[in-house]
Amino acid sequence: MRREMIEYVSYGGAVITNSAVSDPGVKALVYVAGFIPATGETVGDLAAKSSPPIPLVTTEVPGGAEVSIDPAHFRESFAGDVDRTTAADLAAVQRPAGTKTVTDASVREAYRTIPSWSLITRRDKAIAPDLQRFMSKRAGAHIEEVNASHAVMVSRPDAVTRVIEDAARATR
């Protein structure tokens, strides 16, 4: 199946930044409340510039460790504009991330050769909006903003859909 566009949230921005360069089917990058690292930066480097830090829980697993957002602080840190029940459900089913997702340095910058869009979440407490703006401007992304938390795909799916459609229209 040919991919015309990829979109991820948060640390997934680092994934598309590094992997899309080698896929000629990728026509646009859409960062949704995402990290957009430059070569040599890590998600951890960027996250350290966001304040206050997200309360994380580290779990030792075979072959390393995984981190997840502390469920007791999930809503306030990640999903402040989502109702309590939905936020609790999201906290319960969140997928932990391997610590390498935070410590591995970026080696490519797909946004240098592939047009990019960025949806900045103004009420984000996981990645500060000013940090999102900095990364988006540095990447030369088309920027859209919305009053939403980091859980924008749940709280404002209309805004997420709009930025994806904008990117798709522009790269046809």
Rank of each mutant, 00 (worst) to 15 (best):
D81V: 06
A72W: 09
L119H: 08
I114D: 04
I69L: 01
P115H: 06
P71N: 06
T85D: 15
V107Q: 04
R75T: 02
Q94K: 06
V102L: 14
S116H: 10
P96Q: 06
Y111T: 11
E66F: 06
R108C: 02
A110L: 03
A110F: 01
A92V: 00
D104Y: 08
A92H: 15
E76G: 00
S118D: 12
A105G: 09
S116F: 03
T99I: 11
V82A: 02
S106V: 09
G63K: 04
A79M: 04
T121I: 07
I69H: 05
F78L: 02
V102D: 12
P96Y: 08
E66C: 04
Q94P: 11
W117R: 05
E76A: 11
L90N: 12
A87Q: 13
T86S: 11
T121F: 07
R112A: 08
P96S: 03
P115W: 07
A65G: 00
P71S: 08
R122V: 01
R75A: 00
A105N: 10
Y111W: 15
E76L: 01
D89C: 01
R112D: 12
E76H: 07
Q94F: 10
A91C: 09
L119W: 12
I69S: 03
R112Y: 01
R75Y: 02
F74Y: 15
T101Q: 10
T85E: 15
S68I: 00
E76Q: 13
D89K: 09
V107K: 05
A65H: 05
E76D: 13
H73F: 04
P96C: 06
E66D: 04
V93W: 07
A79W: 11
P115D: 08
H73Q: 10
R108N: 14
S68D: 02
T99N: 03
D81K: 08
T113K: 10
T103G: 07
S116A: 11
R95C: 05
L119I: 03
V107R: 08
A87C: 09
R95Q: 13
H73N: 12
G98S: 06
T101S: 03
P96D: 07
K100H: 13
G80M: 07
E109W: 02
D89E: 13
A105Y: 11
D89N: 13
T121S: 14
A105V: 14
A91H: 14
P71A: 01
E76W: 06
I114N: 12
T99W: 02
A88N: 13
